[in-house]
């Protein structure tokens, strides 16, 4: 059964996921999102995947969360602290969440994975590197091109074309 570290990570992850969505300030919300992403990294450590965990910390906690923080800072101050949500949909959303959690949870609890345990030794993270440069090398190159393309696309999208019209700068 679950041990103390697992329970603590669960509380951190789910609590900060709720906080990320429900906190009034978007800045605190994005810091809470960092807690969720870090908690997931902790789960990866528990699953004997230290390389994926460090990748998660480097990519998500390190870069994506900071990118989100900077985007939040570009937004007007009153919008950061304003809660925009459909009041009518709130209860429907909570109901949908509970339906998904209960039904999927019941399915999983009823299925065979409840008793699945493994005696496999933890995979060596050096195998990941070998995988990347042997079997998965076309996918790795495609992924690099995709990342370069998306970052370039993001820069092109966010480029201002009205810089000479400096009314926005003020």
């Amino acid at each position: 059964m679950a041990d103390a570290v697992f329970l603590a990570l669960t509380v951190i992850t789910i609590g900060s996921a709720i906080a990320a969505l429900e906190m009034r300030s978007l800045i605190y919300g994005s810091i809470a999102l960092m807690g969720t992403l870090g908690g997931i990294a902790g789960f990866f450590f528990l699953l004997d995947a230290p390389f994926v965990a460090l990748f998660q910390i480097a990519v998500y906690v390190g870069s994506i969360a900071v990118l989100i923080l900077f985007t939040v800072m570009l937004v007007k101050r009153e919008l950061i602290f304003k809660k925009i949500e459909d009041k009518r949909r709130k209860f429907a959303g909570i109901g949908l969440m509970l339906i998904i959690m209960v039904s999927l949870g019941a399915v999983f609890l009823d299925s065979g994975i409840k008793t699945m345990t493994t005696d496999e030794p933890a995979p060596d993270f050096r195998d990941i590197g070998i995988d990347f440069v042997t079997y998965y090398w076309p996918a790795l190159i495609l992924m690099g091109l995709l990342l370069a393309g998306s970052v370039t696309g993001a820069l092109v999208l966010a480029k201002r074309e009205d810089v000479e019209n400096d009314q926005r700068a003020n």
Partner: peptide
Amino acid sequence: MTSELIDFTLVSVALLGIG
């Protein structure tokens, strides 16, 4: 691995519901 697969799956279901 001290925790079992079902624990991680349930955490994942909870996160999916919140999302």
